[in-house]
């Protein structure tokens, strides 16, 4: 009796804490963003988001995100595949290093590339004659985005591939199926939802990346400014309406990703139930 009563009190206390926390740290700021974005009326907001530089920044963000997601999908699949299906020397090292980008501060990621590709860098004297510019240019931004979102996809795939084992692949191979067929017919259906979920996480992270990109971008308005950098620029210039209008774009993109994630989680769980029952 007492225990049940205590449990009920605890339950409500925990619920209230969670909601208050969410309200103070998330909902309130979000409302503030929208209110500030519309401070100068609807026309001010529209002007803010249709600003030439805002559009260019959005475009660049989307571009960098798409490239990063593509690169990491390919890399993630390859890494997860080789880590779970083969045994080789250096497997542990590979598996550990994949996680490095999440543990290292993004600013360091940016600096690493400046040191590698910058004027003092080891590769500069080879790349410069070829006309390849990485630092303070779009390739640098893409590179930084790829770096910080590196492990998202492989980390989603590895546990699932490990749990599956290699029996089904061996069975298919014994029946004469080639590697690509095995991947398409046996492995891919199995990791489909995890892969999509990884893509969603990767997208979310790529869109919002600030630190590493900030170091590498050079902040050239309309050229190398992504949305987060552009927002910061406006904010530093006391253009609050513009900054928050641009922020709202990023927020909308994040909400789309969040909804996608919910749908995927739901669908994936359903199918997992079918396969496990």
């Amino acid at each position: 009796m007492d225990i049940r009563k205590e449990n009920r009190i605890l339950k409500w206390v925990l619920i209230i804490i969670s909601f208050v926390f969410l309200a103070v740290f998330l909902i309130l700021p979000l409302i503030y963003i929208i209110v500030t974005a519309f401070r100068d009326g609807l026309s001010g907001y529209i002007k803010g988001i249709t600003d030439e530089y805002a559009l260019k920044a959005t475009g660049l963000t989307i571009k960098a995100t798409i490239i990063a997601v593509l690169v990491n999908t390919i890399f993630g699949l390859a890494a997860a595949w080789c880590i779970t299906k083969y045994s080789f020397k250096g497997k542990k090292i590979l598996s550990t290093f994949i996680d490095l980008p999440v543990t290292v501060s993004p600013i360091i990621a940016g600096l690493i590339y400046v040191l590698t590709f910058g004027r003092q860098g080891a590769l500069y004297k080879y790349l410069d004659p070829l006309g390849i510019k990485i630092i303070f240019a779009v390739p640098g931004i893409v590179l930084a985005t790829v770096f910080v979102t590196f492990p998202f996809i492989s980390r989603e795939l590895i546990p699932i591939l490990t749990a599956q084992g290699t029996d089904e692949e061996e069975a298919a191979a014994l029946m004469g199926a080639g590697t690509f067929t095995i991947f398409r017919k046996v492995t891919l259906p199995h990791v489909k939802w995890a892969l999509l979920y990884g893509v969603v996480l990767c997208t979310a992270r790529a869109m919002g990346e600030f630190g590493a990109v900030s170091v590498l971008s050079g902040h050239l308005r309309g050229k190398t400014n992504t949305l987060p950098l552009y927002i910061e620029l406006l904010y530093q210039g006391y253009d609050f309406t513009g900054a928050f209008a641009a922020s709202s774009i990023l927020v909308i993109m994040a909400i789309i990703v969040l909804v996608l994630r919910l749908i995927l989680e739901h669908k994936g769980k359903k199918e997992l139930d079918v396969s496990r029952r």
């Binding site: 084992g165 029996d167 089904e168 061996e170 191979a173 014994l174 396969s275």
Partner: peptide, 20 residues
């Protein structure tokens, strides 16, 4: 290769393709 040895293999776990 195993696929050309004319072999049918039944795995201990059966290894049925679970999405088929």
């Amino acid at each position: 290769p195993g696929s050309e040895r004319g072999i049918g293999f039944v795995f201990q776990s059966y290894a049925l393709f679970r999405y088929m």
